[in-house]
Write a protein that binds this DNA or RNA. Structure first.
Lengths: 188, 188
DNA sequence: GTCTATAAGGAGATAGAC
DNA sequence: GTCTATCTCCTTATAGAC
């Protein structure tokens, strides 16, 4: 018996899972329709092409990322604790996904800057992640001072987290993310 | 007229260029033999499979990376200047390669931790890169003191560079690598 | 080393019947 | 929405003749 959930959603959810865990190029249309348990006609009714499916996958990840992050941080008011909890969120997400890394970094690595629409979407997502951290550090700066320039600190924290997420996907653990959390405490 | 260079070398050089710039999965055997201008029989005489070619590609990148880095730094004796010049090296390599990122991070993103041999090779390469930075900071610590713990600083610098190289491949510029260089100066 | 033929399978995508 | 058939093309890899 078929699941009752919306067919269009089931296609995207299955494609997302496969794109993330085994790669976009390594995932075929036939595997998506088999695992989503839908007909190929349904796939092409809802999505124009495999690339179109990729775009909607990134779009959904973008929305989910910030919605879940906001939810995870909503009860914390202190900006420094909020920043540390942002790292906890990244640790949690990685540990729940077999440390498969960042959706956007992975797609960038696979398709490069070939597709303008995808490229711009990835750039925009990374800018938004950077701005999120920037704002938290701005808030912290109203009550604390640091040893290095604020702008340098903001970029450093963003880049360390990026590096640590990549490290998680390479090493299969969140050790570096945990180290980043400890290090940030030393900055303030 | 065929080039005079060794056929085996030409296969690997062509495969390396294509794997790096358009991805492993997006590169076909037929494209490699066409661009290397060799016969398919020659390819399978020298390499067992496409995966075998991937392994030799990473092996060559590993050797080249550290050989070229040592050469780039050989005239600099001061450890802090050496560390800053290591960043210059990464900037130079990225700018010469259309900011295509790190060979190892890209392969990891494409094939994940599926192939044990490839996986271990990537992990070992990243460990060696981390140790290289660790040693330089150890040297610096004999003449300077820093505001945060040495171990945290060593990991931070490694992770910031990793993050900045990923950023280069996403944004198509080396702005973040240049920022990392400025930030390191502030740490000491 | 070169060439061509071919195997055996998978890819993305379309069309038509129900 | 389902199903099956089909199109076109490409994939990795092997074999044999020169």
């Amino acid at each position: 018996m078929k699941q009752k959930s919306n067919v269009k959603e089931r296609i995207l959810d299955t494609a997302s899972r496969l794109f993330y865990h085994q790669g976009f190029n390594s995932t075929g249309i036939n595997q998506i329709i088999a695992e989503a348990d839908i007909a190929i006609g349904s796939l092409y009714k809802h999505y124009q092409s495999k690339s179109d499916l990729l775009y909607h996958y990134l779009e959904q990840q973008e929305t989910e990322y910030f919605a879940n992050l906001d939810d995870y941080l909503k009860d914390e008011k202190q900006p420094l604790k909020k920043l540390l909890k942002l790292i906890d969120y990244r640790i949690k997400v990685q540990e729940e996904s077999n440390c498969s890394g960042c959706h956007f970094i992975k797609v960038n690595a696979e398709i490069g800057r070939g597709d303008k629409k995808i490229e711009q979407f990835i750039v925009a997502h990374k800018e938004r992640q950077r701005d999120y951290i920037k704002s938290l550090v701005d808030e912290i700066s109203t009550v604390k001072s640091f040893s290095i320039e604020k702008k340098a600190l903001q970029n450093s924290i963003f880049l360390m987290i990026e590096g640590a997420v990549v490290s998680a996907s390479i090493n299969g653990n969140t050790n570096d993310l945990k180290e980043v959390k400890k290090t940030i405490n030393q900055f303030f």
